[in-house]
């Protein structure tokens, strides 16, 4: 349902619009990556930019992630504001040295004398049987290593504002967009991600989580596609008389621990939904940030709905078995309720 003056955009279009607006303002902003020029990005997030800005600033690269991400670090240190695309986050294996040993450490190694203003945008997520090298999220892998800001939008409004904020940041920002939210015609898209986006430029603060649904009985914390699963579960829970609050992390680094703690202090219960692998990752960090702060607020042991610790399988039934979904979140509540009824 479109309201008057509403301007619904996909995340892909919102990212491209933010990039174009910053490119008009700042000649130092340019984009490098594989298939980001004529093709407009495999996930559409640079579509239209080549026509407006030309091949100098919208630069297709060889399939050489180590070289062009390393080059982005050098260009960023030299006064430019590069945006680079790592087409699938899974490809980090061929270029992580450039990312975490250079991009993430050079500000520190220089004692703060250098700025490294660059954005590394990368696609995450599965659910469409693309196999175990094209379906991971790896949120925890990136968020674990110091020196990179890490954001993950769940909708087009945040996507645009986060991109603008990332492009204006003097530190490296890893911008992780979920393929299932991107709005590509050839891949199913969560409709809730396509929302009203103001035409004018604006920023969404990096490091601030959002309470996207208010509730009293349980806090469901998630990011990216997981936020939509959480909202669907919250609706089901509402039918059972349970009032669920949903927190969209928006940013993993910095992590808005205050908003998470305040919500759990109110509801007393916590479910974390994460499409990344369960162990040593985001879900554990969220639970720890609550329990190490004040365990007395909890009325039940926290639960997590995350990807089991296995490579991502290809077969549809196997992958879907592993992925988080609204039913699993509701089941997590049921288990929690059984432990200690509301």
């Amino acid at each position: 349902m479109t309201k008057p003056n509403e301007r619904k955009l996909t995340i892909a279009r919102a990212m491209a619009e933010a990039t174009a607006q910053e490119m008009r303002l700042d000649p130092g902003v340019f984009v490098m990556g594989e298939d980001i020029a004529a093709l407009g990005g495999v996930y559409g997030n640079t579509r239209g930019l080549l026509d407006e800005f030309g091949p100098e600033r919208i630069r297709d690269t060889p399939i050489s992630e180590t070289a062009f991400i390393g080059a982005a670090v050098g260009a960023a240190q030299d006064g430019m504001r590069p945006v680079v695309e790592l087409m699938f986050v899974d490809f980090f294996g061929v270029c992580f040295d450039a990312i975490y040993n250079l991009m993430a450490k050079n500000i520190y190694f220089s004692g703060g004398n250098l700025k490294v203003p660059m954005v590394l945008m990368t696609s995450t997520g599965g659910g469409y049987s693309d196999g175990g090298q094209h379906s991971q999220c790896l949120y925890g892998t990136f968020a674990h290593l110091p020196g990179m800001k890490v954001v993950a939008p769940s909708n087009a409004y945040d996507a645009k504002g986060l991109m603008t904020a990332a492009l204006r940041d003097d530190s490296p920002v890893v911008y992780m967009y979920h393929k299932g939210l991107q709005g590509m015609g050839w891949l199913g898209t969560e409709p809730g991600a396509t929302v009203h986006v103001p035409e004018e430029s604006y920023t969404v603060e990096i490091g601030k989580a959002k309470v996207v649904r208010e509730g009293r009985d349980v806090t469901i914390v998630s990011l990216g596609l997981g936020v939509h699963n959480a909202l669907k579960a919250a609706k089901t829970l509402e039918g059972k008389g349970v009032s669920a609050e949903v927190v969209d992390l928006v940013s993993l680094v910095p992590l808005d621990r205050e908003t998470i703690r305040a919500s759990v202090a109110k509801t007393g219960r916590l479910i974390v939904v994460d499409e990344d692998y369960q162990s040593y990752g985001v879900s554990g960090e969220i639970i720890a940030c609550v329990t190490e702060h004040d365990i007395s607020v909890l009325k039940a042991a926290p639960k997590r709905v995350a990807f089991p610790d296995v490579p991502i399988p290809y077969a549809r039934v196997m992958e879907q078995y592993c992925l988080p979904n609204p039913d699993k979140i509701v089941a997590a509540w049921d288990e929690m309720g059984a432990m200690q009824p509301a």
Partner: peptide
């Protein structure tokens, strides 16, 4: 001037600085 501790690591940043000078 910058240096780093892993073999061949300075290549990318130097190429990027060269790109920056050319673009600017």
């Amino acid at each position: 001037f910058a240096c780093s501790g892993i073999i061949a690591q300075g290549m990318g940043p130097a190429v990027g600085a060269a790109l920056s000078r050319k673009m600017q």
